Computed example of a mutant assay.
Amino acid sequence: MNKEIKAIYTIWLREMTKFSRERVSIASSLVTPVLWLFVFGGGMGINVRMGIMGNGYSAFIFPGIIGMTLLMTSIRSGISIIWDRDFGFLKEIMVAPISRISIVIGKALGGATTAIIEGVFILLLAFIVGIHLSAIQIILVIPVMFLISLGYNGFGLAFASSIQSSEGFQGIMGFIIMPTFFLSGALWPLTNAPEWLKAISYCNPLTYGVDIMRHIILGEGQFLLPADVLIIVCFATGTLILTSHFFSVKK
């Protein structure tokens, strides 16, 4: 057991070391969410009828922008598997006397941690859109961010483990990230959406992650909070099990 924990920690630490050295990449990955929040939120807020958005449009999309940050960072961190394979590191750890699930957990925890760091940066900008978070709200929202990040990091790792090139991975992820974001209810309430759009959105795990954060940050949400939490926990657990299976069958 101690050997497995040490392996998980070592892989996690390696991911953190790589993350700390990619300062330009970190800064650039934060530009898109900030632009969405202040440019899109501010511009659309002028033209959107508030309706049920009692806190204003920028405040309404704020949890969704955090969700987008977590989604983008988590899924794209899966590309580290391809880089590790190209440089031979993946082969070394695959033949090491540790379980494959420890490799997956270490990689997933590393990716989730980097996503949370970037998500917390956006979270700290809440006051700019008129949201004043208490310490309790911050403490409550971080575990939710962790579950979202863990789930989508597992999703990214699962895809990356079966794709041979980083270009192919980035191309496929480009078709997944934005539709997932747009169909999560991050930018508009789903209550008035067409039925076909609701049906698709209800199959999107990010929908429930964003809804949990709205419950915590804004005190409002579309679904029951326990149901949201259950779905996100199942999603995170399911993607990790799926990724562990993919790694287990690899030679």
Rank of each mutant, 00 (worst) to 15 (best):
M1F: 14
N2S: 13
E4C: 09
I8S: 05
T10Y: 10
L13G: 00
L13K: 12
K18R: 14
R21P: 08
V24T: 12
I26P: 06
S29V: 04
S29Y: 10
V31M: 14
P33E: 11
V34M: 13
V34G: 03
L35G: 06
L35K: 00
L37F: 13
V39W: 05
F40C: 07
G42R: 02
M44T: 04
G45N: 04
I46D: 05
I46A: 12
R49I: 14
G51V: 12
Y57R: 02
S58Q: 13
A59I: 11
F60W: 11
I66T: 07
L71V: 11
L71N: 06
M72K: 02
T73P: 07
S74G: 09
W83H: 09
D84F: 13
V95D: 02
A96T: 07
I105D: 07
I105L: 15
K107Q: 14
A112E: 04
T114V: 11
I116F: 07
V120A: 06
I122W: 06
L123Q: 03
L125S: 06
L125C: 07
F127T: 01
L133Q: 03
I136D: 04
Q137G: 04
Q137N: 02
Q137K: 08
I138D: 04
I139R: 00
L140K: 04
L140H: 02
I142L: 09
V144W: 03
V144F: 09
I148N: 02
G156P: 07
F159W: 10
I163P: 05
S165C: 11
E167K: 05
G171A: 11
G174F: 14
I176S: 02
M178G: 02
S184D: 06
T191V: 15
T191Q: 11
N192T: 14
A193T: 08
E195Y: 08
W196N: 01
L197K: 00
K198S: 10
I200D: 02
N204P: 09
I212C: 11
I212M: 15
R214I: 13
I217R: 00
G219I: 12
E220G: 00
E220I: 15
Q222S: 11
L224H: 10
L225S: 01
D228G: 01
I241T: 03
T243P: 00
T243F: 02
H245T: 08
K251Y: 13
